[in-house]
């Protein structure tokens, strides 16, 4: 069985800045992978190359054994990649419900009542059902982050790409979000999650990689990756979010 996602020798640089240096990694169906790394490590660029917003200089991106390196972002969404944006990008004039409905239509290929029920189900799951008729432009940050997740799930993905969805949230909110992602993951969804709030990752993912300077520095079981000497050094010796292990 082919991996859900496979990157093969992916390379990308902007002038002198290397954001991906011969990167290879794979995600099995239903696997949850966490990505940590200091700012500028190439995490968001990696996402953009998986989702199709950024074209790699070299290498191949495979989805379900299909080469999607040249595929446009919308085609990849339809093929099963749902992504969130680090800085939320709501469709401001559409209601929260319509924001997700358009994903159900175009991403998941649903129509009519089926699409509406799907969109509403997603909103209930992420806790936005009460705000279904609110224009998305009026949402506060937490709600915008939830809407990002709702839209990504609304496209009916097999692989969910989460880009720092826990950033800026309070502890109870993070816990709620972790519960949402865990449930989606338990339903068979593959997850790749970039996050600085490391304890949220540790509770959710089965595997973690640490990126730095466009390279994979460490790859493996989350707590072991966080204990890795090189990973700790990258975070100025303190370790990413010191005390995360005890807190979890």
């Amino acid at each position: 069985m082919a991996p859900l996602l496979r990157l093969d020798g992916v390379a990308k640089s902007f002038g002198q800045v290397v954001v991906a240096r011969d990167l290879s990694l794979s995600v099995e169906p239903g696997e949850a992978l966490g990505i940590v790394g200091p700012n500028g490590a190439g995490k968001s660029s990696l996402f953009a190359m998986i989702s199709g917003d950024l074209r790699p200089d070299g290498g191949t991106v495979w989805l379900d054994g299909r080469d999607v390196t040249g595929a446009a972002p919308h085609a990849r969404t339809r093929a099963g990649i749902g992504r969130t944006f680090q800085v939320p990008r709501p469709f401001g004039h559409l209601t929260v419900f319509e924001n997700v409905l358009v994903c159900a239509h175009q991403g998941a290929g649903l129509r009519g009542r089926q699409a509406q029920a799907h969109a509403m189900g997603v909103l209930e799951r992420v806790g936005l059902a009460e705000l279904a008729n609110t224009p998305a432009g009026r949402l506060a940050l937490l709600q915008r982050k939830r809407l990002e997740v709702a839209r990504a799930v609304g496209t009916g993905p097999r692989l969910l790409l989460l880009d720092e969805v826990a950033g800026g949230l309070t502890e109870p909110e993070v816990a709620e979000l972790v519960a949402v992602v865990r449930e989606l993951h338990a339903g068979g969804l593959g997850v790749v999650w970039i996050e600085h709030v490391v304890h949220a990752l540790v509770k959710t993912v089965g595997r973690m990689i640490c990126l730095a300077g466009g390279d994979v520095v460490a790859d493996g079981e989350p707590l072991r990756v966080l204990a890795d000497q090189r990973v700790r050094e990258l975070y100025l010796g303190a370790g990413p979010e010191a005390g995360a292990e005890e807190g979890s």
Binding site: G82, F85, G154
Partner: peptide, 9 residues
């Protein structure tokens, strides 16, 4: 950009 990610051509 978000529209493309929603699956819209």
């Amino acid at each position: 950009t978000a529209a493309a990610s929603a699956g819209i051509d």
